[in-house]
């Protein structure tokens, strides 16, 4: 049980960073975001609908992303999310923190292995 719980926590902790990164340069809808996470992580990261959307809404609530309904000809309207200015700042620090963290982990694991 324990490794899976760890997985869950890790997933959650990283999910924010992932979502923010994906909407950094263009706005995307929820399904697209979750699909991209799944694809780009090679299936390692997967969110079901009940946990993914609450995350999106939480980010929106905190003002890091902004969602709006967009209608395109011949399609159902969809809700697109994009990064806000505040979200950009947060993304920057989160990225740096993750990088530091990964580097630190890396240094430790490398040193042990060396």
């Amino acid at each position: 049980m324990a490794p899976q719980v760890f997985d869950q926590q890790l997933k959650k902790g990283s999910a924010e960073l992932l979502i923010l990164t994906l909407v950094e340069h263009r706005s995307r809808h929820g399904y697209e975001i979750s699909k991209l996470i799944e694809e780009r992580s090679g299936g390692a990261l997967k969110f079901n609908v009940a946990s993914f959307y609450p995350m999106l809404y939480r980010l929106e609530e905190r003002g890091l992303i902004a969602g709006r309904w967009v209608e395109k000809a011949g399609q159902r309207r969809r809700r697109y999310y994009k990064l806000t200015a505040q979200g950009k700042d947060v993304l920057k620090t989160q990225r740096a923190t993750w990088l530091d963290f990964v580097n630190a982990i890396h240094r430790i694991t490398e040193a042990e292995n060396a």
Binding site: H29, G30, Y31, S34, K35, V49, F52, Y53, R79
Partner: peptide
């Protein structure tokens, strides 16, 4: 209403 619409679409796509 918004949440239902958004989630339904997601589930439809899935």
């Amino acid at each position: 209403h918004d949440v239902i619409e958004e989630l339904s679409q997601h589930l439809d796509d899935r």
